[in-house]
Design a protein around this nucleic acid. Sequence first.
DNA 1: TGTGTGTTACCGAACGTTCGGTTATGCTGT
DNA 2: ACAGCATAACCGAACGTTCGGTAACACACA
Lengths: 193, 193
Amino acid sequence: MARISEVTDTQLLDGLTDVFRTHGYEGASLTRISEATGLKRASLYHRFPGGKAEMAEAVLKQADEWLMTHALGPLQGPGEPHSRVRVMSKALSKFYGAGHRSCLLDAFSLGGEDTALREHVRASMMAWIAALAEVIREVGIPAREARRRAQDAIARIQGTLVLSRAIGDASPFQRTLRELPDELLGARDRDDS
Amino acid sequence: MARISEVTDTQLLDGLTDVFRTHGYEGASLTRISEATGLKRASLYHRFPGGKAEMAEAVLKQADEWLMTHALGPLQGPGEPHSRVRVMSKALSKFYGAGHRSCLLDAFSLGGEDTALREHVRASMMAWIAALAEVIREVGIPAREARRRAQDAIARIQGTLVLSRAIGDASPFQRTLRELPDELLGARDRDDS
DNA sequence: TGTGTGTTACCGAACGTTCGGTTATGCTGT
DNA sequence: ACAGCATAACCGAACGTTCGGTAACACACA
């Protein structure tokens, strides 16, 4: 080992995450990233030899892990289903800054090219759906319906994040989180597709 | 008068819209715009002296008008409410390329600055909610509930657009449009917020 | 009818700035 | 002494923007 880094990995990834989620991939310039992390551009290339693409991958990977640990993990643990969903809601609220922050999957899916990042986004989104559907199925709801509810819930989360960001008011997102337990696990069912 | 333009206003705005909605404001470079519209960068400044900002404003204005004419206008016209909503769904499907295109309000609301464009986005989004709530109220649903349903519907549209884009499959968006009439006008009501 | 003048639409070339990325030179803690 | 890491300086390319110039057309006057 040698000199202790003046910028910790946590600070670095947090700054990166913040820039990418607010500006998207193309809008996240190295200058902005440098200002947000406190590391000069050249130093960033020491930490991420793969450059901007590697930074984005690292950010997405960490977000995946955070979501799995704090939101989807507790969802499959013990305890009453409704309260488990409430734990997830709390985690999501923190993750999205109570509705004031954007979703990386939204920000990264803008821009036309077929990059490895796009494939990562796709995989993360599908994993999220699958994990959510699994716990819904677990409380006795048929697989088809479970998958449909999982998709709807995620769409509603993404949608209210966009809506809240556009109008500058996070309350639609917060209402979504509040209603999430019933939307996922409630007895009510909708017309068939 | 003088020479008739070789690139019509329609072609120009269509190309601009396409670039902005796929890349967002920051990702929409003048080179990309130039390629998409067939006009050289310098020529774009002849049509839009205000530069990129004016282009974005024009695109958003045209989208507003299109939406009002083809989607929200018919919604307040005569005819059975359900079929009016179905007309709107058709229009939205066309507007969003059956779910393969992104929403400008999503693309433009990325990026941190407080620009005039952001204010325009906010106004457009709120006008959309208000117009939708109005027609729901018209069929006898209380104002509060109408507003809530309008918000939910738009969130679901935005959300499935993000979802469909992320996973590269437009079917979630298409299902949303199919279920829109019942979601907006159905008798079912949810738990209170 | 033909010519000159003004206007409009477009483009090539360049502006200063910022982009993502690289190289060389240290300072730091062990 | 030395390995690890941050930094200043720099690179070619692309950024949004500006400017001068050139066609193509409309209209006034001869």
